[in-house]
């Protein structure tokens, strides 16, 4: 353990993002610049004169973290400093919604940086409002009757843009996440890791179930693990026996009022997408 983050952080009990943040620096080490938007990850960035990071860090705005990465990455290139990692750690709101334009631009320009999205499927820092990444049927304070629309697939958008490295990951399979961070570092260009990250208070789940839920999301095919290097898809965790979506949903109070047909559509979409990934892998 590199110990590049303070031990005593005021994240919630069982926070998936905290494990992601620590794991990133575990892999990348001290020569890393961390950026966080105003979000739960800003808890690490601190308050007043105090910070949680022992590496250099920058607090971005909500919508432009990838643009800060662009400027930092290009400045490093201009200074011939090639051994410093630039990492954005942003939530799903700052990534798939308000931050999408800056992310898309930075990816298109091909800057070298690593973008880790911790996807907790809603705006959690402001108190559980829906995001584009909230799944069908999930309760949030702005979808009190459950979200009607399916989750936005940012990874496919980035694949369509031709990003050199893109991956999904889950805190439930943290070794797989770390391997992907290590791969991302070797990419000479933008690398994006979309990481499933349960939020116990936001999901109305028990803190102790964070890892269990994060594993189940993968094992139900709701959140398949794969990576694509230069567009070549490889499923990094093959699901032999599909786990029960019902079990996954029951661990989370946010799905308490999900309708049967919504469960059905989640299951069908999950199966179809997983099969599509296997097919593109075969090609």
């Amino acid at each position: 353990m590199a110990d590049l983050v303070s031990k005593g952080l005021t994240t919630c009990e069982g926070c998936g993002m905290e494990l992601i943040a620590r794991s990133i620096l575990d892999v990348l080490g001290q020569n890393t610049i961390m950026l966080t938007p105003p979000s739960c990850s800003a808890i690490l960035t601190g308050f007043g004169s105090e910070t949680g990071w022992k590496v250099p860090a920058f607090q971005s705005n909500l919508e432009n973290i990838a643009a800060y990465c662009s400027g930092i990455s290009v400045a490093l290139e201009h200074q011939n400093k090639t051994d410093i990692n630039v990492v954005a750690l942003a939530g799903d709101g700052g990534t798939v919604d308000i931050g999408l334009q800056a992310l898309s631009g930075a990816v298109e320009r091909g800057h070298k940086f690593i973008y880790v999205c911790y996807d907790n499927e809603a705006y959690m820092n402001t108190g559980i409002q829906r995001s584009g990444s909230t799944p069908v049927g999930a309760w949030t304070t702005t979808t009190p009757g459950g979200k009607k629309e399916p989750k936005k697939n940012i990874v496919e958008m980035l694949l369509a843009q031709g990003i050199p490295y893109v991956a999904t990951a889950s805190v439930g399979y943290i070794d797989d996440f770390k391997k992907k961070v290590a791969k991302a570092r070797e990419i000479d260009g933008p690398a994006y890791i979309h990481t499933f990250s349960p939020c116990p208070p936001g999901w109305r789940a028990k803190p102790r179930d964070t890892i269990k839920i994060a594993k189940l999301a993968v094992d139900t095919n709701l959140f398949p693990l794969f990576e694509a290097i230069d567009g070549e898809v490889r499923v990094t965790r093959k699901v032999r026996k599909v786990a029960s979506i019902k079990e996954y949903l029951e661990l989370q109070g946010r799905f308490r009022n999900i309708r049967d047909e919504e469960v059905e559509s989640l299951a069908t979409d999950a199966e179809n997408y997983y099969n599509k990934l296997l097919e593109s892998e075969a090609k």
Binding site: L9, G46, F47, T51, G52
Partner: peptide, 9 residues
Amino acid sequence: AVTITDTKT
């Protein structure tokens, strides 16, 4: 900020 925050959680 340079002081490492260390809340005894």
